[in-house]
Amino acid sequence: MKSFAYQKPASAQAAVGMVDPMSAAGQGGAFLAGGTTVLDLMKLHVLTPDSLTDVKTLLPAGIEERDGALYVGAGTTMAAAAEHPAFRDRAPALSDALWKAASPQLRNVATLGGNVLQRTRCPYFRDVASACNKREPGSGCAATEGVNRLLAVLGTSEDCIATYAGDWANALILFDTQVEVTGPEGDRTIAFEDLHTLPGDTPAVETTLGDADLITGYLIDLPDWAWRSVYTKVRDRESYAFAVASAAVALDMEEDTIREARIGLGGVATVPWRARAAEDYLAGKTLTEETGLEAGRIAFADARGWGHNDFKIPLGQQTILRGLMEAAALTREGTQ
């Protein structure tokens, strides 16, 4: 690992002033909280920051009611959030997505601010000898014709098919969420759905955050029917595996009829993905295998396979169907 300076400022706002902007090639400085992505990528020389600015103890931690919404501090660990009653009882998808992510060791140190910014596991991104437009703009994409079984079929471009690797963001995107950010210009909020950007022809740009912006928390507006939500994660093994495909589903139902459906997809897209057309289709429908699968088809209508990952299109459709069925089967009592 390249030598770097370690600095620990007194406050989050001071940290923003101290961090050197990180360029696309992973130069400059970086924030360090849980460190589960940044240290991993530094060992691989994918990131070679000159300095790490430690914000782990400076970020607010914990979950609380605030202004009728749920406030989540960016310093909350995945483990603490996964077992928090506010998630478990009011929006189980937010809890499930954390329980089904990573391993206990990782969940104990990883924090929710960094979690939504987790970098892709694309093997060509992680290998400095491979062409990768995300790591080294203009170098090409080794993945489009490479071993791409785990890569994306939604939101891709010829320049990048890297999958967004996280889980929690795919559930968070179901709900109206404001991301609280502090930066050189002061504090502001970003709608969560606007945080991540499609790769297009600039895959090195992954979010609308500035180089020295720091996520400090989230304000989540949970509808009172969010208890009927699940995170269905398909993976090759039962624990500690990235999603092959996942679906976060929340349903507002009256008897068998869907008033409103919300669907977030993971493992199949370049960013946390909201399947709005499928949601629109489901509104007012009775949930059956046929309507569930049709929702899946709509969600993947524009999907493109890249060879090894062609199967993610039918798998993603089936995952939506399964998520819908599992959400519909929840009972309020069963979630408390």
Partner: peptide, 29 residues
């Protein structure tokens, strides 16, 4: 069900040379 050393045919590189993506059974399996 799990173990597969993935070789990129183009350059012979093993693309999952780590134990996050070279999968072995966990306790839950």
């Amino acid at each position: 069900l799990l173990e597969k050393t993935e070789v990129d045919p183009r350059n012979g590189k093993i693309v999952n040379a780590n134990i996050a993506e070279y999968l072995v059974p966990t306790n839950a399996d």
